[in-house]
Design a protein around this nucleic acid. Structure first.
Lengths: 328, 328
DNA sequence: TCCTGGCACTATTTATCTCCAAGTGCTAAT
DNA sequence: ATTAGCACTTGGAGATAAATAGTGCCAGGA
């Protein structure tokens, strides 16, 4: 365990480096603590021994190491109350009654990204609580029709399907069957119900039942796949650690939807999680802060991606605020 | 009018600069044309006088000026047949019967972006030929419902609306009215029909008719608003003229959806249009090549955005190919 | 009249050197 | 345990120099 003054120094160094992006010298610290620079230097040397600080070259000031940030987040971060302006901007969004939830989420993440200059991500999908409300078919021509699926929480998916040799009548019957037998089923259980309760029946009286079954199956499948929304990717251009093009190229190649889906998967934690540097798979110079949310219509994950040199407390409190407001 | 050899030299310079991104010297040219470098130099001096070439500094080779590119595109570009690999990749997409048109468009633009390392944009909306097929309402709770609108070409829009003090019965009646009176109307004329044929009638027997009318009006409105799809923004990072961060920041700030919507508006031309440098409003170092398309279900614009130093012939032939394939 | 070889001239690039500022580490004294 | 003092290290800013890759122009020849 570190002594009190060592903690103080580490905290000051992290916070100064987060603000200034410049290595912190013993002089800067000793002006704040009332002691000489030599004292600070020896403490710094100790913290470096412990692996919490680093130097960029032999005679430079110190910057936090990855472990340093980790220690800071785990031990030194005090749950600060949110900054007034951040708070205000977010409150305006959530107090606006006329906005739908998904718009609130999108807008609030936009605010986070704009205020902090980090990248923000929402990953969401219809929650397990969505029950199948209705399935609808609109014929377009002899062999084309639209299948529309609606849940009781107001989610809608549709798909145009082309069927050869299937009469409208057969389709209507199948749809009626679904509307009778599996309305009220949680949306992510519909696939299995289709398989075991509908497929056997339509197998008997629909000639091309495979085709029809597959088409309908796909529509339901789209509910399961989460959608992702990434805001402010280019904010990284403002960060000095990404001011060279090679670095940016690498980073942007990792900020693609597919990779983010992998990286920011929903898990069962109810806390705010922090993945610093090598702890994530995006880039060793970034930190991801994320949290899950769940309402009765929708669930998913909020995440903020920024440089390791990140305003941890600010981002965490903003995410916390958003999560809480989404959930009621 | 330029002499034949001057045309040749300009063409060679443009094409070399497009490939190499380095100023072209008289030596490189004289190896191709059978004449001395001094001869080429004097021709180059003439082309510079004419404003078609530029130097980066007094003793550098020449690069094309903006007017040079313009002259090249207008006069020197021969309609080359498409490169084999480009052709192949695009054909695979359009020959795949199971893909929907909008997926074909998206995929082919992805291919263009990947093969050329430029940014590609599709801007599309339901065409004027979409006729209202059906409007549907699914009640969710006492004061919430989903309105679903379908066109005969298979476009679907939906919106969850919240109505206070409007009975489900009133809504049903209104929807029936619409289904009777304005089904078959082109989708972009529905708004006016709603205003003049539906509003007066429901005004009489629906108490909160304003609310209901507005809600429905908005669903239709979403058909009119085009959606935009931008592929490969980050490809610009590969271009040497955008290898400094300030330049990229500026460029990316201009490649936002809103700005592109403005810039790549659909017009009534049926050709491939080229906007070089200052001719567009994105950035004076980029060129936009665009073309409109129109099918019976959808219409819009395809565009490719790259550096001024762009493979004009290649991009133009790819766009032409895609346009033609979309339109049948 | 057009083309060409030759030559003087110029800007960019790269490497090397020097000098300065901002740090550190260590030691001896308090 | 703390501090003042001093030697030492590094990166960065400028200055200089040499090498390179071009151009412009002129005079002589087809």
């Amino acid at each position: 365990m570190l002594k009190k003054r060592q903690n103080q120094i580490l905290k000051l160094i992290v916070e100064s480096y987060v603000k200034q992006a410049k290595p912190v010298s013993s002089n800067q610290i000793c002006k704040i603590l009332k002691c000489s620079s030599a004292t600070v230097r020896s403490e710094m040397a100790f913290l470096e021994e412990e692996g919490l600080l680093e130097k960029t070259h032999t005679s430079s000031g110190r910057i936090p190491s990855e472990e340093g940030y980790r220690y800071y987040v785990d031990n030194l971060l005090e749950p600060k109350k949110m900054n007034g302006e951040d708070m205000l901007k977010l409150q305006i969004i959530f107090h606006n009654q006329s906005l739908e939830l998904s718009d609130c989420i999108a807008k609030s993440l936009q605010v986070v990204s704009d205020m902090t200059s980090y990248t923000a991500v929402v990953l969401g999908k219809a929650s397990h609580d969505n029950l199948l409300k209705e399935i609808n078919v609109v014929p377009l021509s002899t062999n084309q029709m639209i299948v529309i699926v609606v849940t009781d929480k107001g989610k809608v998916e549709h798909k145009t399907i082309t069927l050869e040799n299937v009469s409208l009548d057969e389709v209507k019957k199948t749809v009626d069957l679904i509307n009778h037998l599996i309305v009220g089923t949680p949306i992510d259980e519909v696939s299995t119900k289709l398989e075991f309760e509908i497929k056997p029946i339509i197998g008997q009286y629909v000639k091309q039942h495979e085709q029809l079954y597959n088409a309908i199956y796909h529509v339901f499948n789209d509910f399961a796949s989460p959608d992702i929304n990434v805001v402010g990717r280019t904010k990284f251009l403002e960060q000095p650690e990404f001011s060279n093009v090679e670095k940016i190229k690498h980073l942007f190649s990792k900020l693609k939807e597919e990779d983010l889906l992998q990286e920011i998967k929903q898990d069962d934690s109810n806390n705010i999680e922090v993945y610093i540097g090598k702890e994530n798979n995006i880039d060793e110079d970034v930190t991801i802060i994320k949290t899950n949310f769940k309402t009765d219509s929708e669930e998913g994950t909020l995440a903020v991606i920024g440089p390791k040199r990140m305003e941890y407390d600010r981002v965490m409190s903003m995410l916390k605020f958003i999560k809480e407001n989404i959930e009621r």
